[in-house]
């Protein structure tokens, strides 16, 4: 019910978008997000995009974790 899945916007028509998810396409209403663009990943929930995924934050999280791994390797 609260499941929301990251899906990529492939086209936009007004407040409606088509998003791609694991090879299939779905409708996503854009009424709940602002400034969504083609290529953005959105969280898809009951036919609505409820948030645009922040690529910068996603990258930072990954970078921080990968740096720790690198440091650990160096210390070994």
């Amino acid at each position: 019910m609260c499941l929301s899945i990251p899906a990529k916007i492939v086209s936009i028509n007004g407040e409606k978008a088509r998003v791609s998810l694991g090879g299939a396409e779905y409708n996503a209403a854009l009424n709940l997000v602002e400034h969504a663009k083609i290529g953005d990943y959105v969280l898809l929930h009951s036919g609505f995009a409820i948030q645009i995924i922040d690529e910068k934050e996603a990258m930072e999280t990954m970078q921080l974790l990968n740096e720790v791994i690198k440091k650990e390797k160096e210390n070994e």
């Binding site: 009424n31 709940l32 997000v33 602002e34 969280l43 409820i50 948030q51 995924i53 922040d54 690529e55 934050e57 996603a58 930072e60 999280t61």
Partner: peptide, 16 residues
């Protein structure tokens, strides 16, 4: 879960 959650939330959705 910073890639999906902002401290202020989704302001447009909250207004609705």
């Amino acid at each position: 879960y910073k890639r999906a959650v902002k401290a202020v939330g989704n302001i447009k959705a909250l207004k609705l």
